[in-house]
Amino acid sequence: MLEIRNLVKKFGPLTAVDDVSFSVPEGEVLGFLGPNGAGKSTTMKMITGFLAPTSGTAVICGHDIEAEPLAAKRRIGYLPEGAPAYPDMTAAEFLDFIAHIRGFHGIEARRRIAYIAELIHVGDVLHQPIETLSKGYRRRVGVAQALLHDPAVLILDEPTDGLDPNQKYEMRGIIRDLSPHKAIVISTHLLEEVEAVCSRAIIIAHGRVLADGTPAELAARSRYHNAVRLDLASDEAAGIAAELQKLPGVASVEAAADSGQATLWVFPQGGQPISDAIVRLARTQGWPVTGLYVERGHLDDVFRTITAPDATGNALRDAA
């Protein structure tokens, strides 16, 4: 549904987006991740036809955004960064304006606005000027605007930014509900959001795609993938750590003491499962274990490793 081909954007000597390609089929929610200034918004601006790419293009349902901008734009719903809207208009006037631009009139326009207002829960603020709305409502009006024409492709630049936890939860629910029949791209720097709504994630930094996979696949690249956290009641941690170190398959053991109890991190070699061996050893040795957790991996740890501008990041990228 959405195909990005070798997008490049240069601002003078600066390359903001450097050869980004990916495609998003129907039913996928793609999380676009990256530190600030990574090129997420610039990429979205090119996909939606706001900025002309230096080279490459985006194809929306078979329509090239450069060659057929109107046909492509008709199939996109876009929430720009910061959810801009005309502050003097009421939400209803604003949605009515968008409906007219999108070619809906009369009863059809009213029906769509009523439906979206119900879906996004903006019904009770429809007749307030947008400048008087809270951040959360303003963002919802922005999302409502993007959904009015039931687009095949939905591009949301930080849809939950500035929302409180309840609103975030709700917005993620809405995105999930919409996902079966749309190709959705959301940008975010909240990693829990990726795990909550995205079926796939792309990590971008310095304008380049550094990783592309399901959230679980990305998490598996964390050094915490299959690592075991061991909480111990006593202060025998040092001896236990030494025992664990000898266990086959264990790469390293790290101690982290907090609030009266000792915690050991046991990292496996090559991300292989080691919990079973640890449990058996703990039982035979009679260690005072109060908690044992297997980590699936920390997305934020992967994110930091990949996007940090040092040698490890490059090494990981090359490995990918």
């Binding site: 734009k73 876009y78 720009p80 801009p84």
Partner: peptide, 9 residues
């Protein structure tokens, strides 16, 4: 709003 305006069809 120029970004919203100019990405409309």
């Amino acid at each position: 709003t120029i970004e919203l305006f100019l990405t409309l069809p």
